[in-house]
Design a protein around this nucleic acid. Structure first.
Lengths: 353, 353
DNA sequence: TTGTAAGCGTTATCAG
DNA sequence: CTGATAACGCTTACAA
């Protein structure tokens, strides 16, 4: 066995057939006599031929067999969010049926140019913006030029990107409505980071309208629409438990303190619960807390009241959209339902007890 | 702008230069006059040319710009394990510098043939078995035939796969040693699933030696070597918190019950802690527990005594190995240290208090 | 049913 | 510094 990889031509020669016949044997397109096929396969086995080189066939057929999947920041952080993982899992499930592989692309916070040049060197059939992030991305321009179809979950905001969304505003407002019904009138909000360089800080209405991150902006708008324009807002410095804890600490130190905190994600809500515990507040007796995503966080000691947007289903919808696009179909944007799921972290405010 | 993607030839024609000159402008190899380069770039911009097609250049250059990364089972499960995520993060970090993308391959439990045919269609420069799993994989044969270099963390056991390992036996034995020093004499072991079709069950010595999953086998052997050949072993049905809980429940129901349980992973150990709580046992007063991996599990209320194998470092070592292999260097297997890190879940047995 | 030939879009070599 | 020309390994009309 020579050290160079045999090619289809070598196999064909050895089997005593033409190159095209050998090709047909492997691709399965077109009729081949059984005996011929046998001879080709035998020759392949003898030569240690592992099948057609994907590089060559993808050039010829125009299919790479892989889609790029963008996740935010470092993998370590992206995968710490069970919601992101659920979306990816649903996506993987649908793409597996195509079949198509997922090429992970970690979106660096600052250096977009680098990401574009990385993608420029990759053979990709589509691009998936798996998490709703900044409103625009330099990648869109590049992918559009390459005629690579793009799908996202609300961002980037570009007509060339197909979306699977939820009604972020309405979904977040439903959490406020739930609290309002319970009697809360001092409701505060913890947002995800609104853009790069986020830090724990109080937010004004115009900070919200200027926010780069689409879902964070829409949810905050939905919150404000129902809770009142002057309801307090705090931005979390990071989209994780610690970020929620710090943001909530800021809110709870105010006087008067809110009786309920609406967080933009379950992870943030988990941090809010910690901050409440830090101050000796009982949940939901002294403070009600809502999350967003609908994760099952087994390490929480009680079920969170949350807005359930089924992550796996979202991922599957993305995957089906990709599959349709690859098949050359035209697709329409999809809107998925998201609804409030009451748990044990919300109840009447102290004054009503 | 036509609807077909322009090619380098179109750009060259428009710029009034030859194809090869245009190529050199984009690849940066070879000298080009500034004015010529400008003209080419202008023509490219005007045509909306997004750079050389990666499919074609990869065929020509023999590089795909991506490596396949195998994770066990569904993504949802793989990413639920913080250790796996840490390894992937370290890997991503090193590969980013190459630069090379990571194509995720979920290893189905049963249908290996499907995985092979998936990989057969993918242009990959290397294959990374990121988690130590079954001792052999049909992929090895395929990748070897394609001359794709392979790296792993202990499995598959094949001389063609380069490894980054830890001394699993010794590492697991060190946890037993720690307990022994504290005075424990009734030490039990919870193993990861030993192969497909795992279920919660007591294990004999020969179950261990027949185990498919390499690290599970080696750790169990290390455990037995130090704890004594008749120390009780239970296999977890799944490599997660619930698996650990069920396995520990079985151990704790025995009479006499162990005073210490050595788990093969931190996730399993978390389940052991739950099982202890279920029976009203205090840790470490009534039961000592050790884990394996060295994760920081923020949702545990106290630090776990564990064997720290730094996942990120392991991933980086894998990444460096891949980089070296891609550069054509010969590489030697690497052994990384793993050491016991005492936490708050181990102490003297009840009899010594 | 099998063979011939023309690409797919680049990059590498080598001569000018 | 620039330009012909030949691969890279395969697929697919079309002809036999």
């Amino acid at each position: 066995m020579a050290d160079v990889r045999p090619t289809l031509r070598d196999v064909a020669t050895r089997a005593g057939v033409s190159l095209s016949t050998a090709s047909v044997v492997f691709s399965g397109r077109g009729p081949v006599a059984d005996t011929t096929a046998q001879r080709v396969r035998t020759a392949a086995r003898e030569l240690g031929y592992a099948g057609p080189d994907p590089r060559a066939s993808s050039l010829r057929q125009g299919r790479a067999g892989a889609v790029g999947v963008l996740v935010e920041g470092r993998l370590l952080h992206a995968f710490r969010d069970p919601f992101a993982v659920a979306v990816l899992d649903g996506l993987a499930h649908e793409l597996d049926a195509v079949p198509t592989g997922m090429l992970l692309l970690a979106q660096p916070v600052d250096d977009e140019e680098r990401l574009v040049s990385q993608v420029a060197g990759l053979a990709l059939d589509a691009l998936v913006f798996s998490m709703c992030g900044p409103a625009d991305s330099a990648l869109v321009q590049h992918a559009a030029a390459r005629r690579i179809p793009m799908v996202g979950t609300g961002s980037p905001l570009d007509p060339r990107v197909h979306h699977v969304r939820i009604d972020e505003r309405e979904a977040q407002a439903s959490a406020v409505e739930h609290l309002w019904q319970l009697g809360h009138r001092a409701i505060a909000h913890v947002t995800m980071p609104l853009g790069r360089g986020a830090r724990t800080r109080r937010l004004g209405r115009d900070d919200v309208s200027r926010a780069e991150v689409v879902d964070a902006r829409l949810r905050a708008e939905g919150f404000l629409a129902r809770a009142g324009r002057s309801a307090p807002l705090v931005e979390a410095g990071s989209a994780d438990v610690d970020g929620g804890r710090e943001a909530a600490a800021l809110l709870l130190a105010a006087d008067p303190a809110p009786t309920a905190i609406v967080a933009q994600s379950d992870l943030l809500a988990a941090g809010v619960l910690q901050a409440a515990a830090d101050r000796g507040l009982r949940v939901p007796e002294d403070l009600s807390v809502t999350g967003f995503d609908g994760l099952s966080l087994p390490w929480l000691d009680r079920p969170l009241t949350t807005v359930d947007q089924r992550g796996e289903e979202k991922g599957r919808a993305l995957g089906r959209m990709v599959a349709a696009l690859l098949a050359g179909d035209t697709v329409a944007d999809v809107e998925l339902p998201a609804e409030l799921r009451p748990g044990a972290t919300t109840g009447p405010p102290p004054s009503r007890r």
